[in-house]
């Protein structure tokens, strides 16, 4: 009974995984999405750097088919199953992820994902890049102004269009820069005043002046903007060195006082004892 159940269970699981493997539906709009920048060697190189950092651990070395043994298979990016997909489909799948494939939307920019697509395409000699039809499409141009409202602990981002008017419905993403990655504060759309708000946790540790480095990325249609700024947003914090103070494991200079005292006291008393004995022996000789 139990055995039968297990067999049935495995079969069900297998069929699920096969179904999952076969269909990864991409919305038509995303499927036809195209990069407005032509892929060149520079883009491929930056794509390669991202690939080595974020993708190689599963997808392996391109053209070597040495990807991780997982189900569904991660696959080789140089293989036909990858190259037969549209640029938009690759772009979508990298951004959104599924199952074991992480969602890179928050970790990578749209441009960075296009660089990855450029790198993937560099393994296909027959590839000809399709250009998007930009006729009649206006690429919005805008700039970003950042400020911090202390009263409500919110980061305020204002988008200003080319004509100096605020621009509404711009997708905004704000990050705090960390040593190894950027921490997503949130995503929002600008309101009719061209303003987007982000909550900032007041407990976050800042630097000695209470500053945090903010990165804001904005996108509307084919237009995009990015800005980086160090702003006073939280309480200043001080960091202590991990080796500060006197510890048993410190170097001789930073050894605990009691250890130093005991050590020198012991050494000096041993020497005094030896000297006392030596001089005593010397005196003995004189008298004899």
């Amino acid at each position: 009974m139990n055995k039968k159940f297990y067999i049935l269970f495995t079969l069900v699981c297998l069929s699920f995984s096969l179904i999952a493997q076969e269909s990864w539906e991409v919305i038509a709009e995303e499927n036809d999405n195209l990069s407005i920048i032509m892929f060149d060697e520079e883009l491929e190189l930056s794509g390669q750097i991202i690939y080595d950092n974020s993708c190689k651990s599963c997808h392996g070395n391109p053209e070597k088919a040495d990807f991780s043994k997982m189900l569904p298979e991660p696959g080789d990016i140089a293989s036909e199953s990858f190259q037969n997909q549209t640029d938009g489909s690759l772009h979508y799948k990298i951004r959104i992820g599924r199952g074991a494939m992480p969602k890179f939307e928050d970790a990578l920019d749209s441009e960075e994902v296009w660089n990855l697509v450029a790198y993937i395409r560099s393994f296909n000699k027959n590839y000809i890049q399709k250009k998007p039809n930009l006729e009649g499409i206006v690429i919005p141009k805008f700039s970003l102004a950042l400020s911090f409202d202390e009263n409500i602990d919110k980061l305020v981002v204002k988008t200003i269009g080319d004509d100096n008017n605020p621009m509404s419905e711009v997708e905004l993403k704000a990050y705090i820069k960390g040593s190894f990655g950027n921490y997503l504060l949130g995503k929002t759309l600008t309101n009719e005043m061209g303003i987007g708000y982000f909550n900032v946790d007041a407990k976050m540790p800042g630097d000695a002046e209470g500053k945090l480095e903010v990165i804001v990325k904005a996108r509307k249609g084919y237009g995009s903007a990015k800005t980086m700024q160090k702003m006073i947003m939280v309480q200043p914090s001080t960091f202590e060195s991990a080796i500060k103070g006197r510890h048993l494991w410190s170097t001789a200079k930073q050894a605990p006082i009691w250890l130093k005292v005991t050590f020198f006291f012991t050494i000096i008393s041993i020497w005094l004892m030896i000297l006392y004995v030596v001089f005593g022996l010397k005196k003995l000789k004189k008298y004899s």
Binding site: S54, I176, S179, F180, P205
Partner: peptide
């Protein structure tokens, strides 16, 4: 790591980054 097991970061920043997904969390 292909499975997102490891997070690494700076405790002074209170931020750690996942090695696989590159997602940064508190």
């Amino acid at each position: 790591c292909p499975n997102g097991v490891y997070y690494f970061g700076d405790a002074n920043e209170d931020l750690v980054t996942n090695g696989t997904t590159k997602e940064t969390v508190r």
